[in-house]
């Protein structure tokens, strides 16, 4: 930067006007992203807030009401079971398949990548139409159908995490070494590969879980009120009580924040994005 004196002078000058255009854009974007959140948090603690600029008082009453509401608790449980269940099934089905393809049939990877792109670009509404056409009214539980669609829908996230980890640990040569020592393929996969790529699996799992926890389209169109998840419950509460809805949104956001914190601890956010350039 300071190779020429001219440039050095400029650098000093720049110190006086450090404020760049991108600072302004960042500020606007930051406020844009933050304000709705802050307003919701404030609203969830506010007693009465219809005419004044700031709430008339603060209270924990809305959170208390929310956490005593059985409907909320059971919808929370349903969301938890559905998202965690689909995530686990997805990991069990997808991770070994991706491993096998990467190590033993790399030519198939092209097709998997095409699948990943399709699942990623396919909006929930289109999937919902297809699933209804294929399975509705045929005696199949639509809840299971939604679960199956969730399992497939998480493919992009699990593929990304698993493939990167497999590359980092150099799975192919690990498998060769294990074979030389007399381990069977399955044995080597379960005892050597899986423990080594566990961080990647965990990251993919957490990402999938947080995605599914916020899913509304499929469950609403295919199952609706018959299986009230957190999102559907929130949709119902939206027009009844703003305060309780905001307490719910704040709780939901906290769960997402905890998952993000875990992901950061695991190095999935920030680090992986910087590694992204090599891909």
């Amino acid at each position: 930067m300071t190779n020429t004196t001219n440039h050095a002078n400029k650098h000093v000058l720049n110190k006086w006007r450090r404020f760049h255009f991108y600072h302004l854009v960042l500020l606007i974007c930051g406020l844009y992203l933050l304000l709705p959140l802050l307003a919701t948090v404030l609203y969830s603690f506010a007693t009465e807030w219809n005419k004044t600029i700031l709430p008339e008082g603060l209270t924990l009453q809305w959170f208390a009401t929310l956490f005593q509401d059985l409907r909320f608790l059971s919808s929370f449980g349903r969301s938890l079971i559905l998202s965690a269940g689909a995530t686990i099934v997805s990991l069990i089905v997808t991770v070994p398949a991706i491993f096998a393809i990467v190590v033993y049939a790399p030519r198939l990877e092209r097709y998997v990548q095409a699948l990943v792109m399709t699942t990623y670009a396919l909006p929930g509404v289109i999937m919902a139409v297809g699933l209804i056409r294929a399975y509705a009214g045929k005696g199949i539980s639509m809840l299971l159908v939604v679960g199956g669609a969730y399992v497939v829908g998480m493919l992009p996230f699990i593929y990304q995490g698993t493939r990167n980890s497999l590359r980092t640990v150099n799975a192919a040569s690990l498998m060769e070494a294990a074979a030389l020592l007399g381990a069977s393929r399955w044995h080597a996969f379960l005892r050597i590969i899986v423990p080594n790529i566990m961080p990647g699996i965990l990251v993919s799992g957490l990402l999938s879980f947080s995605m599914l926890f916020g899913e509304f389209v499929l469950i609403n169109i295919l199952v609706g009120g018959k299986f009230e998840t957190l999102q559907i419950y929130l949709f119902g509460v939206l027009n009844r009580s703003g305060h309780i809805a905001s307490a719910l949104v704040v709780s939901y956001f906290l769960i997402m924040a905890i998952i993000s914190g875990l992901l950061m601890k695991l190095g999935a956010i920030g680090q992986s994005q910087q590694k992204g350039e090599s891909q």
Binding site: P36, L37, T40, G214, L234, F235, L238, S246
Partner: peptide
């Protein structure tokens, strides 16, 4: 991750 119903609600507030 803040999208869909929760996001719509935050903007209503």
């Amino acid at each position: 991750n803040f999208a869909g119903i929760p996001l719509a609600f935050a903007f209503i507030v």
